[in-house]
Amino acid sequence: MKPARILIVAGSDSGGGAGIQADIRTVTLLGGHAMTAITAITAQNTIGVQAVHAVPADMVVKQMDSVISDIGVDAVKIGMIGSAMTAEAVADRLAQLTNVPIIFDPVMVATSGSVLADQATVAAFERLMALATLVTPNIPELEALGGEQIAICFDTHVLAKGGHGEGAMLTDRLIGPGGLVKSWSNARIETIHTHGTGCTLASAIAARLGQGSMLIEAIEFARKYVREALMLAPGLGQGHGPMGAPFGFHQHA
């Protein structure tokens, strides 16, 4: 049986905790085949982002074209976009796909607090939200995008992540065009090593959808995977370190 082909459109994290590196690790550990279109190169570690170099939009699309035309694609995960022009170009290319689930993690700010998307880029996210099967914003990102009504505005599903919330219990809410679909609540895992949680969650959902799971099933699996990864964090770096890698998780989950 061939592995699910997952195309990841995202930026590189030199520290290996988030971005393309977290995406490839997640898709691979879950039995998928990871392909990439890198949108930006960052110099970053657990403390912050020191520099960002955007890849030109036409080169991002050429990476996408190259793998789609030869290998094919079963699901797409979009992370850091890099520029408004790239957002538009990626949307144009993805609009040509049919029956391929698209998971859009609207990355705006790194775990360290560094801004990764300017206002023009955030405005261009509308095209991607309209194409997405699922959008996975955290609390600040959801607010910046216009709140839960984006599910209605763009006829999509939104997983409003509660990780930035207050209190001992955190809740993730799945909202569809018709309102709340389902919610999940879990006790907060006390750790500062949360770098890459959003990337990992979105990639795990994409991997499962590419393997044929239904949306709610894919989300529930991915949430468990991320919680396991948080508990396995190796404690690297001086700031928000990377999560751990739950080897063999897909075989028993």
Score class of each variant (00 low, 15 high):
251 Q>S: 11
175 I>Q: 06
229 A>R: 02
207 A>D: 09
31 G>H: 05
204 A>D: 10
239 G>T: 12
58 D>I: 10
216 I>E: 15
157 H>N: 13
114 S>P: 02
252 H>K: 12
170 L>I: 14
198 G>A: 06
58 D>Y: 13
117 A>Y: 03
162 G>D: 00
12 S>E: 13
231 M>K: 14
178 G>L: 13
153 C>H: 15
109 V>M: 11
153 C>Q: 15
200 T>K: 06
169 M>S: 13
62 K>F: 08
211 Q>L: 07
230 L>Q: 05
1 M>N: 12
17 G>C: 09
17 G>Q: 05
149 Q>P: 00
41 I>F: 13
130 A>R: 14
248 G>T: 03
134 L>K: 08
196 G>L: 07
2 K>L: 14
49 V>A: 02
92 D>Q: 15
14 S>K: 02
71 I>R: 04
175 I>H: 06
149 Q>A: 15
185 S>N: 11
31 G>W: 00
95 A>H: 13
74 D>C: 04
182 K>F: 13
218 A>K: 03
29 L>K: 01
91 A>W: 07
214 M>C: 04
51 A>P: 05
121 T>L: 11
73 V>F: 01
250 H>P: 04
13 D>I: 07
32 G>K: 01
73 V>A: 00
129 M>Q: 09
199 C>A: 01
122 V>C: 10
52 V>W: 06
145 L>P: 05
124 A>F: 08
97 L>R: 00
151 A>D: 00
23 D>T: 01
171 T>L: 06
138 N>H: 08
119 Q>M: 11
62 K>S: 14
133 T>R: 10
177 P>H: 02
127 R>P: 07
11 G>A: 12
222 A>P: 07
68 I>S: 05
96 Q>A: 12
44 Q>D: 12
194 T>V: 12
87 A>W: 02
22 A>M: 02
49 V>Q: 05
140 P>Q: 10
61 V>M: 04
248 G>A: 05
86 T>H: 09
98 T>G: 00
59 M>G: 03
51 A>N: 14
237 G>S: 08
38 I>H: 10
